[in-house]
């Protein structure tokens, strides 16, 4: 049959497409999948993990990266790390960077942030960020896990639609943070990272075991730090995810019941038509 041969040809071509990314994998590794608490239809953030992640961000990443879309007050908001408001006010007051503004005398001035302020970043502007990092400004991290992805290829991208795998970005960020390798030749000012596209990245390996002291007894390993800070960044990128999934579930339930009722009404209305 003509149709069959065409379908076969199509299948062959799709097979070809599946083989292509495999050939490219040599230059860039796909990140491994990690068991995120926020994955899947019912997945929610792990509050303790978000709090630890914020601690890692504060103690390690904040010296280079901003999270400019977050305000301190967000940290106590439902669906996030839910740090008590009083504690958040203290975190803001003690923050390592100041709010930069124009003072009453018209001169640039600085003041300690309040809970209602956006979290101030380390650099006054992009030029300062570039100058301090060998010409490569550290990107803002607020949307990072949503702003990175990797190609899944056929047939995975179709299967993902049903299994709801969408943590590509989080998997990448975690893999990136733990993907540094020694002993490679790199251009000056760069470091070898097996997950970074092109492998030579301006950011040095920032995570060491026992670098951040957790108060809840969680193992102080590089893997754990990377997972925690990535979970925190995922929340920063998608702060209303828990509400979204909860409402989505109610919407689906309603629609399913409504569809059922409509279906049986339709059957009843149409019953006498064919006779």
């Amino acid at each position: 049959m003509k149709r069959f041969s065409l379908v076969l040809a199509a299948a062959g071509l799709i097979g070809l497409s599946a083989a292509m990314p495999a050939a490219k994998a040599a230059e860039q590794l796909n990140p491994p999948r990690y068991g995120w608490s926020f994955a899947g239809m019912f997945g929610m953030y792990d509050r303790a993990q978000l709090q630890r992640g914020f601690q890692v961000y504060k103690e390690v990443c904040a010296s280079c990266h901003s999270v400019s879309l977050l305000s301190f007050r967000n940290l106590s908001q439902p669906g996030g790390p839910e740090i008590p408001a009083a504690q958040v006010a203290q975190i803001a007051a003690d923050w390592q960077h100041k709010v930069r503004e124009i003072g009453d005398d018209g001169q640039p001035a600085e003041r300690a942030p309040r809970a209602s302020d956006r979290i101030p970043g380390p650099f006054a502007n992009i030029k300062a960020a570039e100058a301090a990092n060998g010409g490569k400004a550290p990107p803002d991290l607020t949307l990072m896990p949503k702003a990175r992805s990797y190609e899944r290829g056929f047939p995975w991208f179709i299967i993902d639609m049903f299994t709801l795998y969408q943590e590509h970005g989080a998997d990448y960020v975690k893999a990136f943070l733990t993907g540094y390798e020694q002993g490679h030749e790199t251009p000056p000012g760069t470091h070898y990272n097996k997950y970074f596209p092109g492998n030579f990245v301006g950011m040095p390996n920032m995570l060491q075991p026992d670098q951040v002291t957790y108060s809840d007894g969680t193992p102080q390993t590089v893997q754990q730090y990377a997972a925690d800070v990535t979970a925190f960044l995922m929340w920063a990128a998608e702060p209303h995810m828990e509400q979204r999934k909860r409402i989505g579930f109610q919407v689906l339930l309603f629609l399913l019941v409504f569809a059922g009722l409509t279906y049986f009404t339709k059957k009843k209305v149409w019953k006498d038509v064919h006779a």
Binding site: M41, P139, L143, K146, A147, R148, S149, D160, M161, L164, Q166, H168, G169, A237, R244, K245, I247, G248, F249, V251, L252, L255, L256, F258, A259, T262
Partner: peptide, 26 residues
């Protein structure tokens, strides 16, 4: 229409960025 809304909700609430491009968050 209700059945189509189920498909719509599946994307909008459970994988809202599946059909988009990550780089558009830069």
């Amino acid at each position: 229409i209700i059945c189509f809304f189920i498909l719509f909700a599946w994307f909008a609430f459970f994988q809202p960025n599946y059909l988009g491009h990550a780089v558009n968050y830069v």
